[in-house]
Computed example of a mutant assay.
Amino acid sequence: MAEVVTKGVGKVERTADRAEVQVSFETLGSTRDEAVRLLTARIAEVEPALGRPGVEVRSRQLTVHDNWDGRRRSGSRAMQNYVVRVDDVTGLDGLLGALVTAEPTWLNGPTWQLKDDVEAVREAQGEAVRDARRRAEGYAEALGARLGPLHRLTDGDAEAWAAESNRMMAAGFGGAPGVPPQMDQLNLEAQRIVVTVRCTAAWTLLD
């Protein structure tokens, strides 16, 4: 039985409705205890902002270690790393403004996401199958044959979807203490995410 095997691609665009931000705060002290006390005081200003509606702290990671200058100990360092998820993207500007005002050592984001990709994946799957069928019909016509029923269908990707236009904004903040950058000058609008599905289909060819 003759068959034709084609590949199909389906792409669907959606506007991101979730963002993720990574932020770190670091302090130095002559001892570990001092470094931790300074860090605790510093992040005390940050925690209220992380408790806003629609904001979820996915992880808090504390790191404390000594600094060394060759074989000589030269104080201690404490760092708190946060991974923050924002489900209400309308409040993202305010959250980032509060974080920047708190003088983070490092801030990376936002990384744009979809809260639920099921509907978009299914729509992309349908488009991928239709694309594969259009290609198969073209080959069948070129061969003077008719396209028969679907014989086999496999997912062409290890992952169901890829956020091809997913953008990450990384910002390093310096300058005078207490002077945050102008948040309204940053492009913080929710980005478009392309949900992509690929498939491979085998169709029977009829005389």
Rank of each mutant, 00 (worst) to 15 (best):
Q80V: 10
V195Q: 01
V89W: 03
A49K: 03
K11S: 05
Q113N: 13
D116F: 02
A162I: 09
T90L: 07
A171L: 15
G54Q: 06
L39G: 05
E141H: 08
V9I: 14
L92W: 00
E123A: 12
L206R: 15
L205H: 04
L206Q: 15
R135I: 02
D131L: 06
A171N: 12
I43T: 15
D207A: 13
R73F: 00
L99P: 01
Q191I: 05
D33W: 07
E127G: 07
G144I: 05
A202Q: 11
S76G: 06
G148V: 04
R58P: 01
L107H: 07
V21D: 00
V12S: 05
E164P: 01
P48V: 03
V86I: 15
H151E: 15
Y139H: 12
N166M: 12
R52M: 02
A98G: 09
A201T: 07
W161E: 10
Q182L: 12
V121A: 09
V195A: 03
N81A: 15
F25R: 06
V23H: 01
P177H: 14
P181R: 06
V86Q: 03
L153T: 06
V36I: 11
E189T: 13
R72P: 02
G156V: 09
T40K: 14
T27G: 00
P177I: 14
M79Q: 14
D88L: 08
A190W: 00
I193H: 01
S74K: 14
L186S: 08
W161H: 09
D93Q: 11
M79V: 13
W106S: 13
Q113I: 03
S165L: 09
D33Q: 15
R198F: 02
R85L: 05
V86Y: 02
T105A: 12
E103H: 05
G174D: 14
Q191E: 13
E189Q: 13
T154H: 08
K115W: 03
V197E: 07
A16W: 01
T196M: 09
A2V: 09
V195R: 01
A19P: 00
